[in-house]
Amino acid sequence: MNTDVELPLELAAVADLEAGALERLRGAFLLAAESGGLVDVAYRVLDSPVGPLLLAGTELGLVRVAFAREGHDSVLESLAATISPRIVRAPARLDLAAREMDEYFAGRRHSFELPLDFRLASGFRREVLAHLPEIGYGHTASYAQVAALTSSPRAVRAVGTACARNPLPLVVPCHRVIRSDGSQGAYLGGVEAKALLLALESHH
């Protein structure tokens, strides 16, 4: 809300817009913007057992999943810089992603089947991400084991980096990559989130 404007008394009566007026307008605006091909990135926030998740999608598919601790606002700013500033909160485009997420957290979904846009990961990072779904639901693999699947089998640290910067956590299961000593290791959603996900998958 714009609070900078101090309205003269005579205009005070028009300051308050009736409840719902802006939301209704936004809805119509979003429909027109989508059908005009003007929305480069749509996003919504989904409540989940690991906290609010930011889901962002391009016309090609889901492009970013972000945990609250990453700072949703700064993630959106980063998307504005790297993809396009034409970013709006438009839940409809993310309906499929949200539904699959809900099913996953309910233990009813073991793999995601939705279009993904991998443009935020390139080169070796992308290669690593492409291999992660090979670690099945309820299983884990070490960073070294994942490196062994790639074209650079010794690049264990780079696998760690690729997981830490996975733009599509949960959907691309970097949480299934653990340390060689069997400890769970770090996670961009936090160690508690990683533990929760691994426990969830071991029970379903």
Partner: peptide, 15 residues
Amino acid sequence: TLPPFEVLVSTHGAT
């Protein structure tokens, strides 16, 4: 960098 367009809608939509 431009802010996400959403910021403009939510900040200035009412005005």
